[in-house]
Amino acid sequence: MPPWTKHLTMASSSSLFLLAVLLALVSWQATAYDPSPLQDFCVADMKSPVRVNGFPCKDPMAVNPEDFFNPAMLDQPRDTKNSKVGSNVTNINVINFPGLNTLGISLARIDYGPLGVNTPHIHPRATELLTVLEGTLYLGFVTSNPNRLFSRVVKKGDVFVFPKAMIHFQMNLAHDKPAAALSSLSSQNPGVISIANAVFGSNPPISDDVLATAFQVEKKLIDWLQSQFWENNHY
């Protein structure tokens, strides 16, 4: 075999290997979400001792129409007066609606009192599509580096999307009227991490030395923040 043929073969092999790696990465990205169902449905069996990435399936012969129904009455507003942040989130996910198992979707209703805030948080496993039901909201999300804010004011009937795992928030702009929104999420169990709660209300707490350095403030301010009651309005 001529020397140039050997080099050409090695180059071709390298190209094919690189192409295979790229295809594998694309394939992984395409499947890095909730698993696609391999049957018509997989109602979650909450009584099963088996623990998997998701929930095991209930016996199909034991499934009934009630497994695909949730009487949550999302058309009814929720109380926000007892919330320190002025909002109340009602979740409909696989935990309280087993019929969603493997279907890759969940819902939430967010009620906002006057000037109420759904505080900055992330959903580690889901993109969120928010539809305004009533009122006018200021909302937005922050990207990863560089930390760019995308925000705007939205009103009844408007739709806004928060990309997966981005820090996002909403605020009712009215001083005297409530507001409400319906959120669709691309996971049966999207999860939520409230930023302030996680940073200042973790158990056990994060070292005040770490937080004082991170926020460039005195430790006594961090200690005060950690001593507050951090309400979680997402459950």
Rank of each mutant, 00 (worst) to 15 (best):
P163M: 01
T31A: 14
D223L: 14
L182G: 01
M166D: 00
G86L: 04
L137W: 07
I92S: 10
A32N: 14
I105C: 01
N70Q: 09
A44N: 09
S83Y: 11
S186G: 13
A11I: 10
A214I: 12
L100G: 04
L18Y: 09
V21I: 10
A196Q: 06
H175P: 00
L38K: 14
N172Y: 07
M1S: 13
N189C: 02
V26T: 10
V217A: 07
I92T: 13
F41C: 11
L173C: 12
A198C: 09
K220G: 00
G157W: 02
P35G: 00
V132C: 08
F169S: 03
H7L: 15
L173M: 15
W224I: 00
P163N: 03
C57E: 11
A212L: 09
E231C: 08
N197T: 07
F17G: 08
H7W: 15
Y138C: 00
D59A: 11
A180K: 12
H168Q: 05
L103Q: 09
K220W: 07
F229I: 06
S83A: 08
R109V: 05
Y235W: 14
T127W: 02
N101T: 05
A62G: 07
A72K: 15
D158F: 10
G86P: 07
F55I: 01
P205K: 09
L23T: 08
A44D: 06
G135S: 05
N53P: 00
G86H: 05
T9N: 11
E218A: 10
A214Q: 13
S202T: 09
N91E: 09
Y33L: 05
M1T: 10
N96G: 06
M171V: 15
T131E: 07
T143E: 12
M171S: 14
P205H: 06
N70T: 04
Q226S: 11
N145P: 09
Y235D: 07
D223I: 12
T90A: 14
S202V: 07
H7T: 12
S202G: 14
D45A: 09
R51A: 00
Y138M: 07
W4C: 12
E218K: 13
